[in-house]
Amino acid sequence: MKALKLFTPLAAALTLMASLCTSAQAADDVMRVGTDATFPPMEFVQDGKRTGFDIELIEAIGKQLNKKVEWVDIGFKGLIPGLISNRFDVAASAIYMTEERQKVVNFTDSYYRGGLAVLVLKEDASIDKPADLVAGKKVSAQVGTKSIDFLKTNYPAVTVVEVEKNQAMFDLLAIGRVNAAVTGRPAAVEYAKRQPKVRVLDEGLTTELYGFAIRKNDTELQQQMNQALQTLRSNGEYAALTQKWFGTTKE
């Protein structure tokens, strides 16, 4: 009886250890990815499912790493804080690799080139180039993005109207509540295709590189994702995705 009493706690402890090991192993097979799926063609929801260039590229990387991708939906301004606080392992949402962000997180190698662009109404002849963003003009931009600080620093005379969601920024322009909207060029071009009332200025504001954000201490995952990106570029899958979403194989 005494031997049985000693065995029972030991067996329970061993069972718990085995369970913890199994859970840890399962976690190694999962890559949690935070995204704000409101930014077509990079990431958005269509027919109830996430899709877009970033979404499909991350899924392809997951397959290369033999990891199941678990998506975590979060507003753009919460992506970096959520990553740092371990809510997910990767932030993938058309994030510019800015110096400020690189102080607190690491990035993969750049996976696409973009930059800030200006959207205006076609009927508005008063804005034909960025220099026309002068006093009296209202410009919408999404909170948490580079657009806000860039406008306040480089175009201090304009009134910046900050919105939570990318679509709200476009809506304000379409109904004439603002004179322009500033966002990433891929999203600006995509919106202009769907909304005949607007146009994208030929002259951009900046040239930027997109990267997937990873915690500073997660260098192993960073290296694995970089290797996966290299493989996808060499085997043609990356080119197929850029052709699908941007109509070109050029980055």
Rank of each mutant, 00 (worst) to 15 (best):
T15K: 01
A18G: 15
L10C: 02
D47P: 05
I58W: 10
L14R: 03
T8G: 07
A27L: 04
A12V: 15
G34T: 01
A24S: 11
M42H: 11
I58Y: 09
D54T: 14
G62M: 10
F39P: 00
L6T: 04
F7T: 07
A12L: 12
G48W: 14
A13R: 02
A27E: 10
A13Q: 07
K67Y: 05
I61M: 15
P40K: 03
Q46W: 04
S23G: 04
L65M: 09
D54L: 08
F44D: 01
M42N: 12
T38V: 06
E59T: 12
E59Q: 15
L57I: 11
K5P: 00
R50M: 11
Q64S: 14
G48P: 11
L57S: 05
V69D: 05
G34H: 01
T8Y: 09
G34L: 01
K49Q: 14
S23F: 04
A27G: 03
I58L: 12
V33Q: 03
Q46R: 11
Q64I: 06
I55N: 10
S19G: 15
T22Y: 15
T51N: 04
D47V: 02
L16M: 10
E56I: 05
G62H: 09
F39R: 13
F7E: 05
Q64D: 14
I55S: 06
P40A: 03
R32K: 15
L65W: 13
A27F: 07
G48Q: 11
G34K: 02
D47Q: 13
S23T: 10
C21V: 14
T8H: 08
L6C: 03
E43M: 09
P41R: 13
E59A: 13
T8S: 13
A26G: 00
G34P: 05
K68R: 08
P9V: 03
G48N: 11
A18T: 14
D47G: 14
R50G: 04
M42S: 07
D28P: 00
V69H: 00
D36M: 09
L65A: 08
T51F: 04
L16N: 07
L20F: 07
T38L: 14
T8P: 00
L16T: 11
F44C: 06
V33A: 03
A18V: 10
D29W: 08
F39D: 07
A37V: 09
L16Q: 07
F39E: 09
E59V: 10
I58S: 10
E43W: 02
P40V: 01
F44W: 13
P40G: 00
A37Y: 02
M42Y: 02
N66I: 00
Q25E: 13
P41F: 05
A12I: 15
D47C: 00
S23N: 13
D29A: 13
M17S: 15
R32F: 03
V69G: 06
L6G: 00
L20Q: 12
F53G: 02
K49I: 01
E56A: 06
A37L: 05
K67T: 00
I55R: 05
L10N: 06
K63W: 06
